[in-house]
Computed example of a mutant assay.
Amino acid sequence: MVILVSILIGGVCGWRIHAYFTKEDSLPTNYITAKLQDAAELTTQTITYTSRVPMTDGKIPFITKKSFVMYYNATLRAGVDLSEVEVKERGNDKIVVKLPHATIQGTPNIDPNSIEFKDEKKAILN
């Protein structure tokens, strides 16, 4: 009887140890998709640039026409919208993630400390 109980306990312990070391870690596709959608954007490139914007108002030179040129530095981001990612399972050991093409994300971020006004021309009546 003791031998039978020992064999039974040994078999159960061996089976549990085998199951522990051979189990496969797998994530369901909907879990991966949900985690990707939480972030929703992935910036892959940023560009910092200086822009020149001429401004003119009025029509008669020296009387009503005034103008200036504004310069500023801005940063623009490009990347991938992760809400459009497609995740598919291929067999038991592969997951295919299809990313959309990169696009411009948001609007330019203008540095307010970089704004400069140059070439100011004032009018007599303004």
Score class of each variant (00 low, 15 high):
residue 113 N to I: 01
residue 67 S to L: 01
residue 60 I to P: 00
residue 124 I to N: 00
residue 55 M to T: 03
residue 61 P to N: 06
residue 55 M to W: 13
residue 27 L to C: 07
residue 68 F to K: 00
residue 108 P to G: 06
residue 16 R to Q: 11
residue 94 K to F: 12
residue 75 T to W: 08
residue 63 I to K: 06
residue 35 K to I: 14
residue 2 V to M: 05
residue 123 A to W: 04
residue 68 F to V: 00
residue 75 T to S: 09
residue 76 L to M: 15
residue 124 I to G: 00
residue 8 L to T: 10
residue 66 K to D: 00
residue 34 A to Y: 08
residue 77 R to A: 15
residue 21 F to R: 11
residue 43 T to N: 01
residue 75 T to I: 08
residue 34 A to Q: 15
residue 5 V to T: 09
residue 46 T to Q: 10
residue 77 R to K: 15
residue 65 K to Q: 14
residue 17 I to D: 03
residue 42 L to I: 08
residue 60 I to N: 00
residue 3 I to F: 13
residue 101 H to G: 07
residue 70 M to W: 05
residue 54 P to S: 02
residue 112 P to L: 08
residue 45 Q to Y: 06
residue 111 D to V: 07
residue 26 S to A: 07
residue 50 T to P: 04
residue 53 V to P: 01
residue 120 E to Y: 13
residue 54 P to N: 03
residue 75 T to F: 10
residue 39 A to L: 14
residue 3 I to A: 14
residue 19 A to T: 13
residue 68 F to P: 00
residue 126 N to K: 02
residue 54 P to D: 04
residue 2 V to H: 06
residue 96 V to P: 00
residue 115 I to H: 06
residue 115 I to Y: 12
residue 95 I to S: 03
residue 37 Q to S: 07
residue 115 I to N: 02
residue 83 S to C: 02
residue 20 Y to K: 05
residue 63 I to E: 08
residue 69 V to S: 04
residue 49 Y to M: 06
residue 100 P to H: 10
residue 115 I to L: 08
residue 60 I to F: 04
residue 42 L to Q: 02
residue 80 V to A: 10
residue 2 V to G: 14
residue 77 R to T: 08
residue 80 V to N: 08
residue 52 R to N: 10
residue 57 D to Q: 07
residue 32 I to G: 01
residue 113 N to L: 12
residue 36 L to I: 10
residue 33 T to S: 07
residue 72 Y to M: 07
residue 126 N to P: 01
residue 39 A to W: 06
residue 78 A to Q: 15
residue 79 G to S: 09
residue 69 V to C: 03
residue 40 A to H: 14
residue 117 F to L: 14
residue 96 V to L: 10
residue 83 S to R: 15
residue 19 A to I: 01
residue 68 F to N: 00
residue 56 T to H: 01
residue 79 G to Q: 05
residue 122 K to G: 00
residue 79 G to Y: 10
residue 110 I to W: 13
residue 6 S to E: 01
residue 86 E to A: 12
residue 8 L to H: 02
residue 84 E to T: 05
residue 97 V to P: 05
residue 61 P to T: 05
residue 24 E to P: 11
residue 23 K to M: 13
residue 109 N to K: 11
residue 78 A to P: 01
residue 53 V to K: 03
residue 66 K to N: 05
residue 72 Y to C: 08
residue 94 K to A: 09
residue 104 I to W: 10
residue 75 T to E: 14
residue 27 L to S: 09
residue 24 E to R: 14
residue 84 E to R: 14
residue 63 I to T: 05
residue 107 T to H: 06
residue 91 G to H: 10
residue 16 R to I: 10
residue 91 G to W: 06
residue 124 I to D: 00
residue 121 K to S: 12
residue 73 N to F: 04
residue 46 T to S: 13
residue 118 K to M: 08
residue 11 G to S: 14
residue 59 K to Q: 08
residue 33 T to M: 14
residue 95 I to D: 03
residue 51 S to R: 10
residue 55 M to S: 01
residue 121 K to G: 03
residue 62 F to E: 03
residue 78 A to Y: 15
residue 76 L to Q: 15
residue 102 A to D: 12
